[in-house]
């Protein structure tokens, strides 16, 4: 439900990284998103598209890699993917387990142009801080 805030944070981090490497246009941003994170990927993609307007990441592609839920069984210690956090262990049938993977909301890499015009400061953090391309109702 907080996809707009997360999208703004992604744009901030992406633009910040690009500016530190000459401010080239960003083409792809990649992130991992655990199945247990309270984030809907489609909503996040839409919010990101809007939030990066007016920055050097405008129109860039957001690649979201879903990380499946991995639990460690508290009874037998078996580690494995589960469809949900209260699904039974495939080895011993015990319900639930400790979350080893599935809560991630993490940016990993971006692709930027290696040539071409560098984006100016106006396409950077200031654009995001003033709300960037967000409709006014989403601005702080």
């Amino acid at each position: 439900m907080h996809e707009v805030v997360v999208a703004q944070q992604i744009v901030e981090a992406v633009v910040d990284t690009s500016l530190r490497h000459g401010g080239r246009r960003v083409r792809v941003a990649r992130m991992v998103l655990g199945e247990l994170a309270c984030i809907d990927p489609e909503t996040l993609t839409f919010a990101f598209m809007v939030a990066c307007r007016g920055t050097c990441a405008e129109s860039c592609l957001l690649e979201i890699r879903r990380l499946p839920l991995v639990l460690r069984c508290r009874e037998c210690g078996a580690e494995g993917q589960r469809a949900g956090p209260v699904e039974p262990c495939s080895v011993c049938g015990a319900i639930g387990g400790d979350v080893l993977q599935g809560r991630e909301i993490r940016l990993t890499t971006i692709d930027v142009d290696d040539a071409g015009e560098a984006c100016g400061k106006e396409a950077g953090i200031e654009a995001i801080m003033s709300g960037g391309g967000l409709p006014s109702r989403f601005r702080a």
Binding site: A13, V14, R106
Partner: peptide
């Protein structure tokens, strides 16, 4: 195209 690493948790 250049790939840059960010590795930053959004929280």
């Amino acid at each position: 195209m250049i790939e840059l690493t960010i590795e930053r948790g959004l929280l």
